[in-house]
Amino acid sequence: MPENTERDWVLPTEIPFSELKGKDLEECVYWLLDAMGAKDLEWRIGGAGGGAADGGRDLEAHFFEPDEEGELRPQRWWVECKGRSGTVESQEVKEACNNALAYEGIDRLIIATNTQFSNPTRDWVKEWQRTFSRPRVQLWDRAHLERYLSRHP
């Protein structure tokens, strides 16, 4: 008979989000995408210092989603992680969105943070999305990360 082993559960609300910045936030999102079923998952670790050459994304992955006819079609996701102690700067989100336009074939741009986005930033993304249908932009704040981590531990 197997021994009773104690399981260590991680409750998303107990994750120290205020300390989850830089490489730690990227790693957390990397493993979340893996648990969500990402394929060809690539962590684009840049060089030292700010302005690391990651090409506008920290993570890149493919997901397979059904198209209008029900056929599975690969979706190319770019993920930018913004670990902060306060609200993510609006300019950072704008730069990420506009940078993604320079590359062909990006279906979804995720901007993930351990904190939150301001309402004006969210409004700007909605307006930007009306002009540019692709890539589809999603803002993953702390609440989103907690929810996704609950579904995909």
Score class of each variant (00 low, 15 high):
residue 40 D to W: 05
residue 34 D to V: 08
residue 46 G to M: 08
residue 75 Q to F: 04
residue 77 W to H: 11
residue 35 A to W: 02
residue 71 E to K: 06
residue 82 K to P: 02
residue 79 V to E: 02
residue 16 P to E: 09
residue 32 L to H: 07
residue 41 L to E: 07
residue 75 Q to I: 07
residue 23 K to V: 14
residue 56 G to D: 13
residue 42 E to N: 11
residue 83 G to R: 02
residue 61 A to H: 08
residue 51 G to Q: 09
residue 23 K to Y: 13
residue 12 P to R: 09
residue 20 L to Q: 05
residue 39 K to H: 10
residue 23 K to F: 12
residue 31 W to G: 04
residue 76 R to Y: 01
residue 9 W to G: 08
residue 48 A to H: 12
residue 80 E to D: 00
residue 64 F to S: 04
residue 69 E to S: 07
residue 40 D to I: 01
residue 22 G to H: 00
residue 49 G to C: 05
residue 43 W to K: 14
residue 11 L to H: 15
residue 47 G to F: 09
residue 58 D to S: 08
residue 58 D to W: 00
residue 11 L to D: 14
residue 56 G to S: 10
residue 63 F to I: 00
residue 24 D to W: 12
residue 33 L to P: 09
residue 10 V to L: 13
residue 45 I to K: 14
residue 78 W to L: 01
residue 20 L to I: 11
residue 33 L to M: 15
residue 62 H to V: 12
residue 42 E to V: 06
residue 65 E to R: 13
residue 56 G to Y: 03
residue 53 A to Y: 13
residue 20 L to A: 07
residue 26 E to H: 01
residue 12 P to I: 01
residue 50 G to N: 15
residue 28 C to W: 10
residue 28 C to R: 04
residue 10 V to M: 09
residue 50 G to Q: 15
residue 36 M to V: 07
residue 74 P to G: 00
residue 69 E to T: 10
